[in-house]
Design a protein around this nucleic acid. Structure first.
Lengths: 180, 180
DNA sequence: CTCCATCATTAACCTGGGTTAACAAAACAA
DNA sequence: TTGTTTTGTTAACCCAGGTTAATGATGGAG
């Protein structure tokens, strides 16, 4: 059994409009989502109403709240659509249950988790070791297409700064570049 | 087959003295380490010689460089012993290979990776959403024993700040507490 | 085209944390 | 005990980024 088969045979297709939520912080949502098309934003909302962006999600990747799926908690973040999106929903427990009987599936899930862990380690490294300006440059380098899809406000909050600070950084960077 | 059996039957026991390195940034090291006793520090070293602490590792947990083990790269951080330590070393490839034939083992590895992913997500959240002072308070709350084992310098660099800043935070926190 | 909303830029002011350096306090070895 | 090294505190100064708010720019909706 393959991952994609599982989604095809046991998943539910869902459509979301721009701005619509797939789940919200505090919800119980135990599904894994495969993104077929669209562009999503996962974000935290503080009690003072400030938003910080956990990640952007592109087509052909999967997304879920591990806390809700696996650790018996509620979603610690919200997942919203930034453009019309089509996703396939699959109960995480069903995947886990199948992977306990299917070696190929278990190994595929393993790979997915290893990739996830490495991605998160990279982000940890960037927050720990790089100043905001370098995080910005690295993001430009790694995912330039992001800058055409997300607003500067969302990108700033992904970098852990405000839109005002990002505007300043862009200015600094441009001045330096034109001075070369 | 269980995880612990694999380490017992196919692992190599190693002893490290205080200050000794298990591997260094830039090394190729494709092993998974199970910590039996001791206390380790994983850290990044910048080109200017500044250190940032990725994590502290306690007994009964496992540690590895995923980049080196799984992504065919070199270690992006160093792993050193903060006190005399005993670890069991196991080639990661051997674990992967075994897990491709052993469903129970694959599922155990899955759980380990899910726990890791959640831990990293928590740290991502803290860097993204909490100021240094709150990260400090949360750390005190989550792992108070850390403050008896690690120096303030290492703790500061784990929090992403300098020892000077941590000293100031401690002072602020104490003043506020005694004012209650 | 005009109105309104969203998004980006800029300025003024403030604050937390970095840097450097001096000093104090432990920890340890000789 | 005494000298040496490591660790923690404090002060002075600087700067990146936060906050607030005003101003521009862009972009549908009607």
């Amino acid at each position: 059994m393959k991952f994609s088969d599982l989604f095809r045979e046991h998943g539910t297709v869902e459509h979301y409009t721009k701005g619509q939520h797939i789940f919200k912080q505090g919800d119980k949502n135990e599904n894994l989502y495969f993104i077929q098309s669209g562009f999503l934003k996962a974000y935290y909302l503080s009690s003072e109403g400030k938003e910080q962006v956990k990640s952007f999600i592109s087509p052909n990747s999967v997304m879920a709240s591990l806390l809700s799926c696996y650790a018996n908690g509620v979603c610690s973040f919200s997942l919203a659509s930034l453009e019309p999106a089509t996703v396939i929903k699959l109960p995480f427990s069903y995947l886990l249950q199948q992977s306990q009987q299917d070696l190929a599936l278990a190994n595929q899930l393993q790979n997915l988790l290893l990739e996830l862990a490495m991605k998160k380690e990279k982000r940890e490294y960037e927050f720990l070791c790089l100043p905001a300006e370098q995080r910005y440059l690295q993001l430009q380098n790694d995912t330039p297409e992001l800058f055409t899809k997300a607003t500067q406000n969302d990108i700033a909050h992904y970098l852990g700064i405000t839109n005002v600070a990002l505007s300043r950084i862009k200015k600094r960077v441009n001045v330096n570049n034109s001075q070369l």
